[in-house]
Design a protein around this nucleic acid. Structure first.
Lengths: 218, 218
DNA sequence: GCATATTTTTAGGTTTAACTAAAAATACAT
DNA sequence: ATGTATTTTTAGTTAAACCTAAAAATATGC
């Protein structure tokens, strides 16, 4: 059984394993967890004892199969609770992350499966991220950052790279949400600023920074 | 801001203040919390520093107005989540206590008020206990233990004195739930064993122990 | 009212998860 | 390839929440 802190570290290791290529460094983890590298060194010893990661001193950590399963359990709960908060309690998508950070640690597999059923077995959360099933399996449609799309193409917004409230509120302001279809009208090579048409809803400017964090599909 | 452990102690102090008359003893608290008296002595110092209780060495603790408010916030969340689990997720009433013990510590007053609204502002939980409003106010209809009711009287089951799974499962087995109307047919003075008629649903025997934990109203 | 029993507190120890400061290992740069 | 910079680990500290053992205060019985 993992503590809240252990679950949070494991989640961070899982996410960093996906983006980065091989093993996760102590520094990267300490930045992600907002703790000091020394604290990370302590924690990875405990996680290695529990067989959810493997590591060699000074060489970073690798998540184990067991660890991946545990991380996906927490991620599944996080995303299901986010769906609950938005769909049932009518929270806005920018308000749910912090609350789900707490709810994801509630321990009861019966609760998780009943919640899943109550929500109608959703496959994505309010930010477009896939929800793993009880075995940790999920299908993730390929997504690209909007910033990589060429002028003239039409794409659909299917996800966001981060769930910071400020970022999501900005998207609300420019009328972008999951499912929005857009056409790239112009793109500045220097700073990445884009002009896009929201189909049937006018045109907006999207900065390079925002475009990096918006995920699309064709 | 209170920790989970502090919230749990405060809840226990609140409950013991209601049943017992004056101040709550260290031993009573240690029994309720399943910790050692020495741990209780430690904790009450912290709670007194946070002004949620007052105490004099060797004289037990008294909950403060501030403490009562905090305790009622936790109790409100506990009971709202129990309603959610039973009404929405279709848990049986004997399965929800432990999960609600976890959910009651989730910190977000917006979550609590939205949950309250989603549930239709329920006034009692699945065990018949009243749900405090956002200000800690609640109305509690007078309830008596079934064991005190005389032969020949008709009463309605409106609550249970404890929420242990074993006890609640037993009630399911003998077809007793909140709202059940019964008539006392016989009552043994020696051991309290009762024979009662479930109106329109036959007769059952109820032991003195069970009758002590069943709350009724006329 | 005094001895004994019970209750409560204190003193000191453990574990978890953080920290700082310093040492050790690794990486980089010329 | 050797010295410097960066990264990581170790050592020692802190705070929370528990523990045991022993001391102190209170309660009880005759």
């Amino acid at each position: 059984m993992l503590s809240f802190a252990e679950e949070n570290y494991l989640k961070a290791i899982y996410h960093l394993s996906l983006s980065g290529d091989q093993s996760v460094s102590t520094n990267a983890l300490s930045e992600e967890m907002k703790t000091k590298p020394a604290s990370v060194s302590d924690m990875i010893k405990k996680l290695a004892e529990k067989k959810v990661i493997s590591y060699q001193k000074y060489q970073g950590v690798n998540i184990s199969e067991k660890g991946k399963k545990e991380a996906l359990k927490v991620i599944r709960k996080h995303r299901l609770w986010e769906v609950f908060l938005v769909e049932k309690l009518k929270f806005n998508w920018d308000e749910v992350h912090e609350i789900a950070e707490q709810l994801e640690h509630i321990k009861s597999s019966l609760l998780t499966s009943k919640l899943d059923e109550f929500l109608g077995f959703p496959r994505i959360d309010p930010h477009g991220d896939p929800i793993p099933d009880e075995n940790g399996n999920f299908s993730d449609a390929p997504k690209y950052p909007l910033s990589e799309v060429e002028i003239g193409k039409q794409v659909t917004i299917v996800g966001v790279e981060n769930s910071d409230s400020e970022f999501l509120k900005h998207l609300d302001k420019i009328h972008i949400s999951l499912g929005t279809k857009i056409v790239i009208k112009d793109k500045n090579e220097f700073d990445g600023l884009m002009q896009v048409e929201l189909i049937g809803n006018g045109q907006v400017h999207i900065s390079g920074k925002v475009a990096d964090n918006l995920l699309v599909t064709e």
